[in-house]
Design a binder for these strands. Structure first.
Lengths: 113, 113
DNA sequence: CCGAATCCAATTAGATACTG
DNA sequence: CAGTATCTAATTGGATTCGG
């Protein structure tokens, strides 16, 4: 069996792989309104996420074509991340996910009591 | 920082965690039409997924309240898996995901050439 | 038929330190 | 400011074996 399994063939398997990064959904959502700089992005993430991890996830999402990295030659350095076309289309999923996530949280609360 | 991070608080972090299993999306989609028995479910999954892995993922999804396991006392044993209420509500996300996944696959193809 | 137990391999996140 | 390199720790999937 191929290492990539059904990546690029089955839409579920493909998406699963893309979003497997622990913070992928959060990053895509945070970039949704517009370009954000690296440190600003980090500030908007949970404190649990380190510099290194954010850097890796961004690289990965960029390699997958979901986000775009724009570097401005300046001192101090300035780099912005934004959604690509296909990344922007993910907003619909993101919205559905947000709604469902909130319902699930309610479900959790009603269940834990 | 708590081990669970924002699980149960942020809808994105929560959902991310739930869907982190390598086959979660595929399983939820496969169960969508109605209850399916274990071996039948396995047959509908990619061959790459083993018996053991499926079993674990099902247990995990059940623990999260997304699916329901129904055991019929009989010989040979018969066990059916189906979506719970909250699991069924995930269909909306699943549909959005399916659409986007297909767009992404197209994007991949146009890019690889 | 359905699954648990165990062990191993692979992946990925986090900590720390260093750079232009 | 925005990274990279390296190491380690934790998680998770896969293979195999055993059981009601």
């Amino acid at each position: 069996m191929d290492k990539k399994d059904y990546f690029g063939i089955c839409p579920y398997a493909t998406t699963q792989k893309l979003l497997s990064g622990k913070w992928a959904l959060l990053i895509l959502h945070t970039l949704s309104p517009g370009p954000v700089r690296f440190n600003e992005l980090k500030r908007r993430m949970p404190a649990a996420m380190t510099h290194t991890t954010l850097s890796r996830q961004l690289k990965s999402l960029e390699a997958d074509g979901l986000i775009i990295r724009t570097e401005y030659s300046a001192i101090p350095p300035k780099v912005e991340y934004s959604l690509s076309d296909i990344g922007r289309k993910f907003d619909k999923v993101s919205d559905a996910l947000f709604e469902w996530g909130n319902e699930y949280i309610k479900f959790l609360e009603s269940r834990d009591v």
